[in-house]
Computed example of a mutant assay.
Amino acid sequence: MKSITPAEFARLDHAALIDVREPYEVAQVSVAGAVMLPMSSLQEHLAELPEGPLYVLCHSGARSARVTLFLEQQGYDAANIEGGIVEWEASGLAVQRG
């Protein structure tokens, strides 16, 4: 499974960020421009995934790792964001609250 750090993701240009957290989690803290597709309903919404490489984010990196593996098995070019939004914020990257 491919993975990158939040800082590595931040250096990419026009990369598709998929947030697989649940709506109540996203309501607390989110990343601007991320596509919200909760892991619990992802299979029902595969057609909504953007084209090209996908970078998958969750709270701490565990759920996004499972989703990344699933997407790879389905033929998608996907990578896990290590440490999730916790590491994202700890790295000093921008988030939106509330």
Results as ranks from 00 to 15, higher is better:
62 A>L: 08
74 Q>R: 12
28 Q>M: 13
34 A>D: 04
45 H>K: 13
57 L>I: 01
13 D>R: 14
53 P>H: 04
26 V>M: 11
63 R>G: 01
50 P>V: 03
96 Q>P: 12
67 V>C: 04
49 L>R: 09
2 K>S: 13
89 E>K: 15
88 W>S: 00
45 H>M: 04
95 V>L: 02
98 G>F: 08
93 L>K: 09
73 Q>N: 11
82 E>I: 02
38 P>F: 03
35 V>G: 15
20 V>E: 08
16 A>N: 14
20 V>N: 03
71 L>H: 06
66 R>F: 11
85 I>S: 00
88 W>V: 05
61 G>R: 03
60 S>L: 13
64 S>K: 06
78 A>F: 02
44 E>M: 15
77 D>S: 14
35 V>R: 15
33 G>P: 01
10 A>D: 05
2 K>C: 10
74 Q>M: 12
28 Q>D: 11
59 H>C: 08
27 A>Q: 12
19 D>H: 06
94 A>I: 09
73 Q>M: 15
92 G>N: 04
96 Q>N: 14
55 Y>K: 05
22 E>A: 09
4 I>C: 07
52 G>A: 05
36 M>E: 15
27 A>W: 09
53 P>G: 07
54 L>D: 00
97 R>S: 11
87 E>G: 03
79 A>R: 01
56 V>G: 03
36 M>Q: 15
11 R>I: 00
13 D>N: 11
37 L>A: 07
8 E>A: 14
54 L>A: 08
92 G>F: 04
64 S>V: 01
12 L>R: 13
21 R>Q: 05
87 E>K: 14
92 G>V: 02
35 V>D: 12
21 R>G: 05
25 E>D: 12
33 G>Q: 01
7 A>P: 01
40 S>K: 07
43 Q>F: 11
82 E>Q: 10
7 A>Q: 12
79 A>Q: 00
94 A>N: 09
18 I>K: 04
48 E>I: 12
91 S>Y: 01
47 A>T: 14
66 R>N: 12
14 H>L: 06
58 C>Y: 03
9 F>T: 02
43 Q>N: 13
33 G>W: 01
67 V>L: 03
58 C>T: 07
87 E>V: 11
97 R>Y: 12
22 E>M: 07
45 H>Q: 15
38 P>I: 03
96 Q>C: 14
92 G>R: 02
14 H>Y: 08
53 P>Q: 05
56 V>T: 01
22 E>C: 07
41 S>F: 09
49 L>C: 07
15 A>R: 08
76 Y>T: 01
41 S>D: 09
30 S>L: 04
90 A>Q: 11
22 E>Y: 08
63 R>K: 12
59 H>F: 14
62 A>P: 04
51 E>P: 09
54 L>S: 05
81 I>Y: 02
29 V>H: 10
91 S>I: 00
26 V>K: 09
2 K>I: 10
20 V>I: 10
56 V>E: 00
81 I>E: 00
74 Q>K: 15
94 A>D: 06
57 L>E: 00
27 A>S: 14
